[in-house]
C-alpha cells in the first residue's frame, strides 16, 4: 500500500518552525561575528614574530581544526561547566564552541589574505611614517579582506550547517523543532522533509549570493585566497 503523505500536521506547527529558524539564524549570527573577530585576533597572534604569542595561537587553531565539532560542543557543554563551576546554557555552549571553531578556520583565511599582500605595501606604509599597526589597519587589511570575501562566505555557510549540532544539546533550533514536531505529530517523513527543504532554501540562496560575489570579484580582476 502506498504511503499517504499528509503535510497538514507539520504545517500546523509553522510557528514552531519559524521560531526554530530564527534561533538557527541567531546562533549562526552570534558565532559568525565572534568567530570573525576572534579569528582576526588569532591570525595576528599567529603571524607575530614572538613565539610566546604565535605558538599558543597555532595550538588553538590546530586543536579546533583537528577535532570533531560535536566533540568540542559536548566538551564545552558537559565538561567545562564542572571545571570552572559555572552553569552553561545550550546557547552559550554552542556560541562558544562554534565561535572558537569557526575562528580557527577564519584565522587561516586571514593569515592567507594578509600574507598574499605584497611586501611593497608594507614598505610603502613605513616610508610614509606609519607604525606596524597603522599599516595593518589602513593599508594591508582593507586590501586583504577583499581577497578573503569568497572564503569568508564559504565558511559562514559551513558554520550555518554546523549549528545544527546544537540540537543534540536541546537548544531550540530548526532541527530541534523538527525532532519535537516529529514526535508530537507522528509524521517524521513529512517533518524531516519539510525541515530539510527549509535548510536547503536558506543555504542554497546564501551559496548563490556567495557565487555571484565571487564572480563579480573575479571579473574586476581581484585575486582571491582560499
Amino acid at each position: 500500500m502506498a504511503y499517504q503523505w499528509d503535510f497538514a500536521p507539520v504545517l500546523a506547527n509553522a510557528p514552531f518552525l519559524a521560531e526554530g529558524l530564527a534561533n538557527t539564524l541567531k546562533i549562526t549570527g552570534t558565532a559568525l561575528v565572534c568567530g570573525v573577530v576572534l579569528g582576526l585576533a588569532l591570525a595576528l597572534l599567529r603571524l607575530s614574530p614572538r613565539c610566546f604569542l604565535s605558538w599558543p595561537a597555532g595550538f588553538v587553531i590546530e586543536v579546533f581544526r583537528t577535532t570533531p565539532p560535536l566533540v568540542q560542543l559536548f566538551w564545552f557543554f558537559f565538561a567545562l561547566p564542572i571545571l570552572v563551576g559555572i552553569e552553561m546554557t545550550p546557547f552559550v555552549a554552542g556560541a562558544v564552541t562554534f565561535s572558537i571553531q569557526s575562528a580557527s578556520f577564519f584565522a587561516e583565511v586571514f593569515r592567507a589574505g594578509i600574507q598574499s599582500i605584497e611586501r611593497g605595501q608594507w614598505d610603502g606604509a613605513r616610508a610614509i611614517g606609519m607604525r606596524h599597526d597603522q599599516a595593518l589597519r589602513r593599508i594591508i587589511l582593507p586590501q586583504a579582506v577583499k581577497r578573503m570575501i569568497p572564503a569568508f562566505m564559504e565558511r559562514a555557510i559551513e558554520l550555518m550547517k554546523t549549528t545544527t549540532l546544537i540540537a543534540t544539546i536541546s537548544y531550540a533550533d530548526l532541527l530541534f523543532a523538527a525532532n519535537e514536531i516529529s514526535q508530537k505529530t507522528f509524521r517524521p517523513l513529512e517533518t524531516y522533509t519539510v525541515v530539510a527543504l527549509i535548510y536547503f532554501v536558506v543555504i542554497f540562496l546564501a551559496s548563490q549570493v556567495a557565487r555571484l560575489v565571487e564572480l563579480r570579484l573575479a571579473r574586476s580582476g581581484e585575486s582571491t585566497v582560499h
Binding site: 550547517k161 543534540t168 532541527l175 517533518t191 524531516y192 530539510a196 535548510y199 536547503f200 543555504i203 551559496s207
Partner: peptide, 21 residues
C-alpha cells in the same frame, strides 16, 4: 541538494523518515 543541507539533517532523515517509505 547534498551540499546545501546539513549532514545531521540528512542522517536524521535517513533514520526517522526514510523507513516510513
Amino acid at each position: 541538494f547534498f551540499r546545501n543541507t546539513p549532514v545531521l539533517v540528512q542522517i536524521l532523515w535517513f533514520y526517522f523518515a526514510l523507513p516510513i517509505l
